[in-house]
Design a binder for these strands. Sequence first.
DNA 1: GTGGTCTAGACCACT
DNA 2: GTGGTCTAGACCACT
Lengths: 128, 128, 128, 128
Amino acid sequence: MFAIDKLSRTPIYEQLIDQFELCILSGDIGPEGQLPSVRYLSQTLSVNPNTLQRAYAEIERRGLCYTVPGNGRYIAKDALIKLREAAESKTSEFEELVSELKGKGVKMETLVGIVNRVYSGEGKVIAE
Amino acid sequence: MFAIDKLSRTPIYEQLIDQFELCILSGDIGPEGQLPSVRYLSQTLSVNPNTLQRAYAEIERRGLCYTVPGNGRYIAKDALIKLREAAESKTSEFEELVSELKGKGVKMETLVGIVNRVYSGEGKVIAE
Amino acid sequence: MFAIDKLSRTPIYEQLIDQFELCILSGDIGPEGQLPSVRYLSQTLSVNPNTLQRAYAEIERRGLCYTVPGNGRYIAKDALIKLREAAESKTSEFEELVSELKGKGVKMETLVGIVNRVYSGEGKVIAE
Amino acid sequence: MFAIDKLSRTPIYEQLIDQFELCILSGDIGPEGQLPSVRYLSQTLSVNPNTLQRAYAEIERRGLCYTVPGNGRYIAKDALIKLREAAESKTSEFEELVSELKGKGVKMETLVGIVNRVYSGEGKVIAE
DNA sequence: GTGGTCTAGACCACT
DNA sequence: GTGGTCTAGACCACT
């Protein structure tokens, strides 16, 4: 379920955060659903518990889950809403950027080409 | 030559800035070429001199033109280079955003759709 | 608190910018502190709202404050740091200029004399 | 007469230019006075002829001397005037900088201190 | 002629 | 209430 690429340039804890968010978005874990414990997941993924702890802390900071001390972590009720709003805001940002680039004389083909490349490839390619 | 839409949500002075930058990018006004005077252009476009002044001031602040006091405004030698670098940097920003949106589970079709919409329509559509 | 000299050769909006920067440097307005509204200050100082707007816009462009739409303007958290860095960079520039002038045979007394004059007088004296 | 510091961070040809300018300013070489030949001076100073050539070319570019082919280089009639104007312009720049620094809240003592340091020491000290 | 600054005041969007 | 933009027009300095 969790695809972590240890060779990637994006830090593992960021990958973890992305994965958790995708889980929530896809409904794999519903509201009030319990998240796997740090120890269990760290063994399953062969990831250092500290790294997992860091990812969980960030998710909690974003208000996507909460901790019941001595019991576990649970998905917040409004987690889905928050994530959708975040995605929407990013999408608006995207639209504004497209608009700006259009205004600067950048061709539509160039942008569509970039979108294609990013989605077909395995992400951002730096210093090819 | 200058298409100003007074009903647009984007301020006139921003439209003017965009137009000037496109003029430089397209080579309509070459380096060291003189820009039309504030008064002349304000009459031609039926735009207040202050609004034009504001646009010119911003273009100058970006190092795209310079003023010879009591004489006129001229395109800077390296204006084209600066504009191209700016466009390139914005394009990188675009690629990063696409990558981020992909990571957040946004479909490629959504993004391509937005690009299409922005380029087919007459600019940004807010709160449709 | 705000000393604006309408007869000075330095534009009012520049004087305003200087005053705001001094307020931040002196700590009169701390980070996250709210700046007086355009209208209020324009009345207090008998300065046109547009002129104040211009000063505020420039301060914002420099990243020293930010706007909460429909609410007001607030000092940025890192405003003090930015101002101090700017002052330091200007001081380096000053040192280089002194070094260059020394190389051109200008006497030290001349420079010290200028410094004295500028600080004793009420600003720059042009074409005395 | 010519003090060249081969260990200095400022290029030799720049030091040469400075020295020539000081010679003109001090009146050591008057208008229409002949400059020493490249070959002679290169031997006297143990400086590569190309370096001297470069310095002379720059001095000529600034209109401070002219070449009579097959004869020699001579100080231009208006060399002194030009140098004084240049120094004056730099001095104005200095005054403006002082004014600006004063406006940014820099203390007068700081500036006088810098002037003192530069003139007492042997120029700019980088990364001590 | 050129640009730069400023005032007076209208109108808009946002909260 | 807040800021943002724009117009109409005056006045200045500079060449």
